[in-house]
């Protein structure tokens, strides 16, 4: 269970996340949707412990993100990730995995299996410097799931991927869901994220406009149509 309660975060005196509360049950795939600059990345950074809320609390199975034991339970894929360019993809994946408290070392086969799943096994021993944007995105995903966490946080996971890449990654997310993983992902693109989510949250200008089952929100219309309606209704009228 992830519980976000009355969280606020301000940058330069402006609340970019305002009084945000969410409760996400274990095993849910939650899509956190909103236009650019809505506060999605700011929120996910607070959840994974990269920044602290100015007010409010975040608890994952009762632990705060500042507790390393909480962060041992999660995987996080940053938005448009940068990497250590001097490492190979395989080295990077091992480096990430070795930051978790595990006693026995895994055989290389575990890493190559994950690299194969995200479709970059053929580049495993190449320097990340030579990777394309899509390959970086796939590697970013791989490091978020390498230690088999129960909770997975993805910031714009489908960004920068071609249609085939998007399909492949969505299939992996569905597989993870079927294995009981809780997945929280940010997206500003709606048209092909709908099929993934059990629940959605809509955020606009730092405020939550809706959260709950996706069906309750769309009421028969397309997600995109309802989204635009909702966001427009919440924006101050433009002169």
């Amino acid at each position: 269970m992830l519980e976000i309660s009355r969280v606020e975060k301000a940058y330069e005196g402006r609340n970019v996340v305002d009084d945000l509360s969410l409760a996400i049950k274990k095993g849910t795939v939650f899509g956190f949707l909103g236009p650019n600059g809505a506060g999605k990345t700011t929120t996910i950074k607070m959840i994974v412990g990269l920044s602290r809320p100015d007010a409010g609390t975040i608890r994952l199975e009762g632990r705060t993100p500042q507790d390393p034991a909480m962060r041992a339970m999660i995987g996080f894929m940053p938005e448009a990730p940068y990497f250590y360019e001097y490492l190979t993809g395989l080295e990077f994946l091992k480096f990430c995995d070795s930051l978790f408290p595990e006693i026995d070392r895994k055989p290389d086969a575990v890493y190559t299996k994950t690299l194969a799943e995200v479709g970059i096994l053929n580049a495993a021993n190449r320097l990340i410097r030579t990777y394309s944007k899509g390959m970086r995105q796939r590697l970013g995903f791989a490091q978020a799931v390498i230690h088999d966490p129960d909770y997975i946080f993805l910031d714009e996971p489908l960004d920068g991927l071609d249609p085939i890449g998007r399909r492949e990654l969505k299939e992996i997310i569905k597989t993870l869901k079927s294995r009981g993983k809780t997945i929280f992902f940010n997206s500003h693109i709606l048209f092909d994220t709908e099929e993934l989510c059990d629940e959605i949250g809509i955020i606009h200008q730092g405020r939550l406009l809706y959260s709950g089952p996706i069906g309750h929100f769309t009421k028969g219309k397309s997600l995109e149509e309802r989204f635009v309606e909702t966001v427009k209704a919440a924006s101050p009228a433009k002169a």
């Binding site: 412990g49 990269l50 041992a72 999660i74 996080f76 940053p78 940068y82 490091q143």
Partner: peptide, 12 residues
């Protein structure tokens, strides 16, 4: 480069 995002979101 924000590579710290990878590190500090782990139990580090």
């Amino acid at each position: 480069k924000r590579t710290l995002y990878f590190i500090l979101s782990k139990p580090v």
